[in-house]
């Protein structure tokens, strides 16, 4: 059924209509048959439309994993592209069920906005890019520089804090869209281009001569990016958190979309629990027992998703770095399914 009109009419009637009480998010989602997922309006590798017009990316895969866990169908997602200004309102108002939009987990957002962060799907940090010809080796030499960055993110605030802390002068020029930021930096409007390190790599290719630029070693902030849900619905919170955890755990156990069928019926108790062959883990969070199988089969494990969208073989060529598993030198660590 089509919902475009329902509320137009309800809107006319305003208080007159008797509405059904607000159900739990999972029931809502099951009733409508898809997950409504808030994503960015375009961030290379995280969520961007491909040439067929489908949304793809690391953030999009979180939405798909949630849908795969609930419905066994990773395509049962509808995407709402949100600007940074409207993302929290959209989640608060129930317009989206989950927000997976390169959103930094901060205390204010977690505690004050009525939201909960369900985990971290990308550890980022703010970095700086400069021209090699400038002869700068450290961010501490940047006093007096003009910095280009994007608005509506925490990056502007981080720059202000960092320069203030180190007693340096600066000028910030902030744009709505990454394309404009990079164009301005490329033209020489700014001496420094600053955004999350992932963004620095992602947008390097926009520069006229990418080889003439370098990323400075300092990372000035912690930017754990992750999916967000509304406060007060623990079941839904669990589904989103464990869908993400399942992707990370799968990589740790070496389960991939290619080999998952061969892992079935194996002897490893951890893998058996993961595949739903033992235990009632799906039931605990209100989804089918083969929830994790569906996630890995249809979306892939975290490593696969990373390689596909942002990894070294993509034009973005982002190294795993801190986003490698904890066992491989990174900090990616998911609680066990047990």
């Amino acid at each position: 059924m089509n919902k475009l009109m329902t509320t137009a009419i309800a809107g006319v009637a305003f208080g007159l209509t008797a509405f059904t009480a607000n159900a739990a998010t999972l029931d809502d989602v099951k009733a409508k048959g898809f997950v409504q997922c808030g994503i960015s309006q375009g961030l290379p590798g995280f969520s961007n439309p491909d040439s067929d017009g489908n949304w793809v990316g690391l953030d999009v895969d979180v939405c798909r994993a949630v849908a795969a866990a609930i419905f066994g169908d990773s395509e049962a997602v509808k995407y709402t592209p949100l600007s940074s200004k409207e993302r929290f309102t959209a989640l608060q108002s129930g317009e989206v069920d989950v927000l997976s939009r390169n959103t930094t987990w901060t205390m204010t957002r977690d505690a004050n906005l009525g939201l909960n962060f369900a985990g971290v799907n990308y550890y980022d940090g703010q970095g700086f890019m400069v021209r090699k010809s400038l002869g700068v080796a450290s961010t501490l030499e940047l006093s007096g520089a003009a910095v280009c960055t994007q608005t509506g993110t925490t990056t502007e605030l981080n720059i202000a804090d960092y320069f203030l802390e180190n007693g340096m002068e600066y000028e910030v020029v902030a744009f709505e869209k990454a394309a404009e930021v990079v164009a301005a930096y490329d033209a020489g409007r700014c001496d420094v281009y600053s955004t999350d390190a992932s963004g620095l790599y992602a947008n390097r290719l926009r520069l006229t001569n990418p080889d003439e630029h370098m990323v400075l070693p300092e990372i000035i902030s912690k930017e754990p990016l992750g999916p967000v849900v509304r406060q007060g619905d623990d079941q839904w919170f669990n589904i989103v958190r464990w869908s993400l955890n399942a992707m990370i755990n799968a990589e740790e156990m070496g389960i991939t979309s290619a080999n998952i069928d061969s892992k079935m019926g194996g002897k490893n108790p951890g893998v058996q629990r993961f595949l739903g062959e033992t235990g009632t883990f799906g039931e605990m969070i209100g989804v089918p027992s083969d929830w994790a199988v569906n996630i890995v089969k249809q979306v892939g494990n975290y490593g696969e998703s990373f390689d596909k969208h942002v990894g070294p073989d993509t034009p973005l060529a982002i190294a795993r770095g801190v986003n490698a598993l904890w066992s491989k030198g990174g900090i990616l660590y998911a609680a066990p399914i047990r």
Partner: peptide, 15 residues
């Protein structure tokens, strides 16, 4: 103005 990074009323309120 918000499109090209000039901090006008709308952009500052947005910030």
């Amino acid at each position: 103005a918000v499109a090209i990074g000039y901090t006008d009323l709308f952009a500052s309120a947005g910030g």
